Computed example of a mutant assay.
Amino acid sequence: MSMNWLVSIRDQRDRFIVPVVLILAWECLSRSGWLPASLLPAPSTVCVSWADWIFSTDQSTQANSGRWIFDALSSSLRVFAGYAIAAFSGIALGVAIGWWRWVERTIEPTLQMLRPVPPVSWIPLAIIWFGIANKPAIFLVFLGAFFPVLMNAIHGVKTVDRNLIRAASMMGASESQILRFVVLPAALPSIFAGLRIAIGSAWMLTVTAEMVAVKSGLGYVLWDSYYFMRFDLVIAAMTSIGLLGFLTDWAIKLVMSRVLHWQHGQTVQGRKH
């Protein structure tokens, strides 16, 4: 028990080695003048501006002072709304395409034609359709998150061990029972992989949408700060997006570890061997 605890501490420590070294090197290069402060502010400067953005400590960020929580919530709501729609529709449609041949023949060609179109190219149409508000951002997040979920759900269903399906059929299971109790559980690892990819795409697309179609959120602050040459706020916004993206991915990993506990056990046994 004590050895496992020590190993866990060591693993957690190792995760921070590279970020800490990079930040220290960045600070030293900025302080020495190798990196111009006008182009890349020192981490300490970014932290001061970030603190004012969050806590309104010295009003150095002016109109943004103390508004970080509102900007983060605005971006998060757009991400979660678009991501939820993409996850539900992507899983449902992906399972249908992977399981029923007639659905695959009917729908997949159209989806495969739309898939290579970059989500950002939909921005003009999204603004025309939905105006300057939350809806175009949610639409773009949906587009960015939908296809990773869809393709991984299709892959997960198509790669289910056919022996499991035959065994369930021989035991008298109906098609709906096979789909519910055999195919879906077997496809879950692939589906969760798609969900993790999709949450990263969702954050990228909401920031892109906020730069052009919305007047609030972390992406809007990032773009607005660029116009005013406030690169300390630009970096603070980038860090905020990365942190929130990391936390949402971590939350999905927690859900995945609980749902796929049987897979975790197999992985641990495989490592021991």
Rank of each mutant, 00 (worst) to 15 (best):
I107K: 01
S169M: 15
V221L: 12
F142R: 01
Y226T: 05
S76K: 05
T159V: 05
F231I: 10
I252F: 13
A173P: 11
I107Q: 06
Q269D: 12
V157N: 08
G200W: 02
F70C: 11
A84W: 02
V7W: 15
T159H: 10
N163E: 10
S74M: 10
K215A: 05
S44A: 12
L179M: 12
C47T: 12
E210W: 13
P124H: 06
L29N: 15
W102L: 06
S190W: 08
L184G: 04
R258W: 06
A198Q: 01
V18P: 03
F142K: 00
A126L: 00
W250G: 14
L6K: 05
L114W: 01
W68M: 13
S257K: 09
I123D: 00
V117K: 03
A87C: 10
L254R: 10
R105Y: 11
R101V: 13
I85M: 08
Y220L: 09
S169R: 15
T61K: 13
P109R: 06
F16I: 09
I199K: 01
Q112Y: 08
I241T: 05
L73V: 14
V103A: 11
L22K: 14
G265C: 08
A237S: 11
R115H: 13
D11T: 02
E175M: 10
F55D: 03
I97L: 08
P185I: 09
V21I: 09
L164A: 06
L254S: 09
A251C: 09
E210K: 15
K215C: 05
K253I: 11
Q59V: 02
K158A: 04
M229I: 08
I138M: 04
I235E: 07
S216W: 07
G66S: 06
S76H: 05
A87R: 07
E175F: 12
A153N: 02
W68A: 04
R166F: 15
A133G: 11
A236Y: 09
P109T: 07
